[in-house]
Nucleic acid binder design. Structure first.
Length: 596
RNA sequence: GCUCCGGUAGCUCAGUUGGAUAGAGCAGCUGCCUUCUAAGCAGCAGGCCAUGGGUUCGAAUCCCGUCCGGAGUACCA
């Protein structure tokens, strides 16, 4: 039981006994005592004045007396401005260390056979262009949330829906066919997704030129956009694809294959993976069937022009189209189909969609539609809506090639990490391969931490020149602290100092106690991160922990400590911090180097 | 127009769901390496928490209005 609940329980009894008040545990506010005030945890007494009918100070005094006699880990208490500050015994804090030592997964809840199953959809790329910075945020969030949900004792299936069909895919295909000259990843040495992406940009270039030409000839902008030869050709290609034209399907398969090879590399470098991948080319027809079923069941309606609609005006929304008048499906139809297939494949208790906030409306509608179609998790699907990544120059535009490419960004960061290490004269003792692996860890640690430490819902600014930092509140700072801990432990082993997890000590310093307190908050951080789907809570926790550790490290010698019991305690303390921070960062998908 | 989201130090962001004197990092200035890794530690400076009201013992946090920014808004995905 956490110290918070122990105090809450006892306080509820105290209030009943002293004042005859009935309050719930949740109404008892227990918080960490301010740093500049004496005490470890603080109980706020203001809400109880209406029961005690006494001054804040007097009420706090009475509650303090009661708690101190009832709870043996409370050494003493003091009252300041109506806040009851409790001092917890050092043995309680030392007990935290044995918990961490006895359990390699301190703070984690184990998954059991009857755990709930959560499916997390993330990434969801289009196969007409390589991944960019926006996708990186998506992928890192999706992966991290999956890990956090697992850490809270739930089964997780990570899934990806690949948008592999549609007019935008045909645009790259057409451009390649027309201007590609048989260029392939093999004969050009290019990464497949980049190759295809270049043709998507190529298409747009020609298309724009054609439009300009037609407008010159006196057509309106709208007419020109519809009559440009390129777009007509791309549309024709889509029709042929839907009719399963052999040649077009083959081209489609070939080019998508190039893209998948490219994506695999990017995913691998980014350290994300999936348990199950769905393809829109498989799900869109299922979606159509589901919509027609809904039509049969009277959930949806058909208009005179044969288009199918959902009327959501009773749900406070509008009417929404589900099948066009020509019978083709829209985005919503496909998402319904994907949901249906997932529902058949897995016993889903909760579905989480990691998709940008520009689609808030879409998911609001999807939740209602799935519910109407009888999916049990439909109504409570969770749209994990995250903000955009902005550049100093504004929004990214892939069609114009104005993006920060995922592969380029990662490679660039590895280079910065390498240069920085060399400049600092680090890692010279490592082999080339080990050193390279460490540079990679540091670079990705910096990138991942940067993306995950901020509130996911908010838009964030990414400045390529300034955002790549390795000092201060960054991933490498946390990695560095871990490497320091590992270094101390290695030195201890070299000196044949054995570490005894049994701690006996007369006293501990303020810094040491602060550090123990911080460790004790890890389980609550995991839980809170799980409830809020927030990697940022974990990131900030890890930062606070290692910041605290660095202060301790600076103020206290570990191996140089003469008193054997104290030295042993500090070694256990350091190793515990290392363990917690490594587990914490693993929830963000960040690896920890043994040295750096 | 309507709906949703945001506005905290020069910049990038926290702020434990209403608690004590609002915190970090970067950038600027100042100290600390002959001692376990200085990618570190300590310090200085920097604030009308967009703004006006309201709710109560107590508001950056909750409610209403205003201003600014972003997103969405029925046959794009």
């Amino acid at each position: 039981m956490s110290i918070e609940t122990i105090i809450q329980k006892s306080a509820v009894e105290a209030l009943k006994e002293l004042y005859g008040a009935e309050v719930s545990e949740q109404q008892v506010q227990v918080q960490n005592t301010r740093k500049d005030v004496e005490g470890d945890v603080t109980l706020v007494v203001f809400p109880f004045l209406r029961f005690s009918k006494k001054s804040p100070e007097q009420t706090a005094e009475e509650l303090g007396q009661y708690l101190q006699t009832e709870i043996n880990i409370i050494d003493s208490f003091s009252v300041l401005k109506g806040f009851l500050n409790l001092i917890i015994s050092k043995d309680y804090w030392l007990g935290i260390l044995s918990e961490v030592n006895d359990n390699n997964r301190y703070g984690f809840k184990e998954v059991t056979s009857d755990s709930k199953l959560v499916m997390v959809e993330y990434s969801s790329p289009n196969t007409n262009k390589p991944l960019h910075l926006g996708h990186i945020r998506n992928n890192l969030l999706g992966f991290s949330i999956s890990e956090i949900v697992k850490a809270n004792g739930k089964k997780v299936v990570k899934t990806n829906i690949v948008n592999d069909r549609g007019i935008h895919i045909c645009k790259s295909m057409y451009a390649w066919q027309k201007w590609g000259n048989g260029k392939t990843p093999e004969n050009s040495g290019m990464k497949g997704d980049h190759l295809v992406g270049d043709f998507y940009v190529e298409f747009d270039k020609h298309y724009k030129a054609e439009i300009a030409e037609l407008v010159e000839k006196g057509l309106s902008k709208e007419e020109a956009e519809n009559q440009a030869p390129s777009i007509i050709a791309a549309r024709e290609m889509l029709r042929k694809w839907e009719a399963k034209d052999e040649e077009i399907v083959k081209l489609w398969e070939t080019m998508n294959g190039w893209v998948y090879n490219g994506f695999d590399t990017t995913y691998k470098n980014l350290g994300v993976d999936f348990d199950k991948i769905y393809y829109e080319s498989d799900t869109y027809l299922v979606g159509k069937e589901e919509v027609l079923r809904g039509l049969d069941e009277g959930v949806f309606t058909k208009k005179e022009d044969n288009s199918v609609w959902a009327d959501l005006r009773n749900d406070g929304l509008d009417q929404k189209i589900l099948l066009r008048s020509d019978g083709t499906s829209v985005y919503m139809t496909q998402d319904i189909g994907t949901a249906k297939m997932r529902f058949v494949d897995y016993p889903i208790d909760k579905m989480v969609y990691v998709v940008g906030n520009e689609q808030n409306y879409h998911f609001q509608v999807l939740a209602i539609l799935l519910d109407k179609l009888g999916f049990k998790w439909g109504k409570d699907l969770y749209h994990f809506s995250y903000g955009m990544v902005e550049l100093p120059s504004g929004k990214m535009k892939s069609r114009e090639g104005k993006v920060v490419d995922a592969d380029d960004l990662m490679a660039g960061m590895v280079e910065v990490a390498r240069d920085m290490s060399k400049e600092l004269g680090k890692l010279e003792s490592l082999s080339g391969e080990e050193a390279e692996n460490t540079f990679r860890m540091i670079a990705l640690g910096a990138l991942k931490y940067f993306m995950l430490k901020v509130d996911p819902r908010k838009n964030m600014m990414f400045n390529p020149e300034e955002s790549i930092d390795f000092n201060g509140n960054t991933g490498p700072f946390i990695q560095y602290t871990y490497a320091r801990i590992k270094s101390v432990l290695r030195k201890a082993a070299e000196k044949e100092i054995s570490i005894n997890s049994q701690i006996t000590l007369d006293s501990i310093s303020e810094k040491e106690k602060e550090l123990l307190k911080r460790i004790s908050l890890f389980p609550a951080a995991i839980q809170e991160a799980g409830e809020n789907y927030s990697p940022a809570i974990i990131a900030n926790y890890c930062y606070d922990l290692v910041k605290e550790f660095n202060q301790f490290y600076h103020d206290h010698s570990i191996l140089g400590e003469a008193n054997e019991a104290t030295r042993n305690f500090r070694l256990v303390l350091a190793s515990s911090v290392g363990k917690v921070v490594k587990n914490g960062m693993s929830l963000l998908g960040i690896e920890m180097p043994e040295r750096m």
